[in-house]
Each structure stands twice: as structure tokens, then as C-alpha cells.
Design a protein around this nucleic acid. Structure first.
Lengths: 99, 99
DNA sequence: TAGATAATTAGACAATCATCGAAATGATGC
DNA sequence: GCATCATTTCGATGATTGTCTAATTATCTA
């Protein structure tokens, strides 16, 4: 489970991650995704109901998290399931801790 | 030397730090400040010369880093010296790693 | 096939923000 | 006092971005 293979972040990805985390709502969404243990049970609705947000905005945020590599999305039929890429997050934290 | 007393970040400060780090130039500036071992030897000019940036913009970025609590500034006469608040940075990383 | 549900895309708008030049502040030295 | 140097503040501008509604795509089910 999550064999910690070394993740290399490009400068571009590093920046994308930082920007993704800088938006409070995106951070909350990421936390929500991360808190959901059962993979596959996490759709957009569950998030949308908690935050007062439109589906379009939510979709936009999720795409940013995906583009940054912080989450992966698997689409099955009508619903999608997301999971946090902790390898990527930790690579980001690792780089920041070097300061 | 930096007795690691526990740093508590408010939600507001957490957000300020995230935003401060999301700007590539600010990250570079922070790294530059952190790389300068000799306290007091680090003025704005040194940074301004490396980055192609106006004094006004640099001043703005530094203020954001200071507001976020990532750096402290001591002004002595004509020049200023800055140092990275690693306690704060690490508190931020710690919180992020909980995801 | 038609209707309902889930998510994305397109387009537009408002707010935020990085940036600069110019003026102001403050400290040093002549 | 006056000139110079370091930094900040002011005001403006252009770019980015978070947000929405409306329309679209895709999937499931009756």
C-alpha cells in the first residue's frame, strides 16, 4: 500500500501544488477527499453538499487538484472516485522543509 | 538556538502562509533569505539584484512574507535584516502532512 | 426511447493580486 | 542643511482566478 517510491517534482508541478493549496476551499476539498477511507465512495455531491458551492466551481477545483497531481480520479459510469496522492504531497512538503 | 516551542497557526495565518508560498518569486525570496547564514548581512539589494524586480514589488513581497509570519525583519539604520521563521514554516508543514 | 442524474465545458463577471513608476519616509554623511 | 542611499507607500494597470448560469456530454434506468 502506497509503496513510497521517490516522487520527483518539476518546478512547474511544485508551483501548481502550492497554488492548489493556497485556495482555502481547495484545501478543504483535499482534506475531505483524504478523510474518506473507503475508496470509491466519494463523489462530488458529498463535497458539494458540505460546501456551499456550485457543481461547476467544484469541478474546476477538483481539476486543479488533479492537474497538480495531488489527487487521482477514476471515473466509473456516472460517478467518480478520488484519492489523495500522498506521495506527491509529501514530496512537496519535503522540498519546502529544505528552506 | 530556535528552541522549538510549539507554534499554533490560526486558520487565517495558515491561509496567509499558503498564499505567500504560492507565488514563485516569494518562494525564491524566502529561500534566499533562508540561505543567508550570517544574520544581518541580507539587505533588499542583494535580492533585488538576483531577481529582475523593482524595489516596490520586492518590498511588497517581503511584507507578505512578514505578515504571514514566515520571516521576521529587524531594521537597523539604513538597512534591514531578515530571517526565516522555521518554527512557523514547520508548523505549516506539520498541519499539511496531516492530510 | 425518454427522462433523470453526474459531471464537464463554455462564457462572462467580479475580485484579487503582481507589477511598476513616482513620490514619500527615514537614516547617514558631508 | 543638503545630498544620497534604502525602503516604503501611493495610485494605477494588466493578468490571473474563483465564481456563477446555462448548455453539453455521458451514464443509468424505467
Amino acid at each position: 500500500m502506497s509503496t513510497s517510491k521517490p516522487v520527483r517534482l518539476t518546478d512547474k508541478q511544485f508551483e501548481q501544488i502550492a497554488k492548489a493549496l493556497a485556495e482555502p476551499r481547495r484545501y478543504q476539498i483535499l482534506k475531505k477527499i483524504g478523510s474518506c477511507k473507503k475508496e470509491g465512495s466519494m463523489g462530488c455531491q458529498a463535497i458539494q453538499e458540505e460546501h456551499d458551492i456550485s457543481a461547476a466551481t467544484l469541478s474546476h477545483h477538483i481539476k486543479e487538484l488533479e492537474t497538480a497531481g495531488l489527487v487521482t480520479i477514476t471515473r466509473e459510469g456516472k460517478t467518480m472516485s478520488m484519492s489523495v496522492q500522498r506521495d506527491v504531497l509529501h514530496a512537496y512538503l519535503e522540498k519546502l522543509s529544505k528552506i
